[in-house]
Design a protein around this nucleic acid. Structure first.
Lengths: 130, 130
DNA sequence: CTAAAATGTTAACCAAGGTTAACTTTTGTC
DNA sequence: GACAAAAGTTAACCTTGGTTAACATTTTAG
């Protein structure tokens, strides 16, 4: 039973950041999350407490941060929404990369699974027939 | 100089609700805003304080609520985003009305003016050639 | 016209998600 | 191996946007 409790937009952002940093460095540090999100170290500590509680990350006291299997799944889900929306903004609407990134960051928290799925299918159908 | 200070998502929701209720009843009451948004009367009082401060509504003590000219413009802006996104979700993606309404409510706060404009142009171009 | 019901306001409170500052632990350099 | 610098944690605090409960004002039915 994967714990499917809903995450706040803020928690989703932290989780997504852990995933992103995992991809390049593998040993994820609080300080890097903080600078990536433009937030204080103390905020990261708090947020990691929430993600640890939800069993989405493993982290020993004063230790490094690792996604659990469940955390990885959730993070992938957030990232997929993000990437999909950003592609829509850039490739369909012609928005510039920076604006698209900013708006995708916010929009990714606003869509329900149904919308994500239909949007995804539509986008790929349109892009494949281009 | 229209005061273009940014509104929080919450304030935008209240403003949009005032506009919607204005359209059918003209004498907008706190209690109707409260029930429309599923929020307590006290929350409405607080929120109206913010909108009054920003000169987006007129309201005498214990009085009814009216949009100012500036408030009307801002509310129209929010509503346009809402309607546009909802049309996209329903007419392009085929999302059901209720889900589209829910998601549009959240997405409307996430897009910047550039995105709104390009999305609007794209949508109308696509719908006109249908 | 008056009294009850409906509406509006205020005050005190709460939770979320930030902050800064002080402290603890870990790391890296000589 | 010691010790300074970097990283992480904790505690106390702030703001935002909600809440409930008590109170004030308006509206409306008799």
């Amino acid at each position: 039973m994967p714990s499917r409790k809903k995450l706040s937009p803020s928690s989703e952002d932290y989780l997504e950041t852990v995933l992103e940093l995992s991809e390049s460095t593998d040993a994820v540090r609080s300080v890097d999350i903080a600078s990536h999100l433009g937030v204080s170290k103390a905020s990261v500590t708090k947020a990691m407490g929430i993600l640890r509680e939800a069993q989405l990350i493993d982290q020993a006291h004063y230790g490094q941060i690792h996604l659990t299997a469940a955390g990885r799944r959730r993070a992938d889900d957030v990232k997929n929404r993000h990437v999909m929306i950003k592609r829509f903004l850039i490739e369909i609407l012609g928005i510039d990369e920076e604006t698209a990134e900013q708006d995708a960051c916010k929009m990714e928290h606003a869509i329900c699974p149904t919308t994500r799925e239909k949007w995804f299918d539509w986008l790929h159908q349109v892009l494949d027939n281009a």
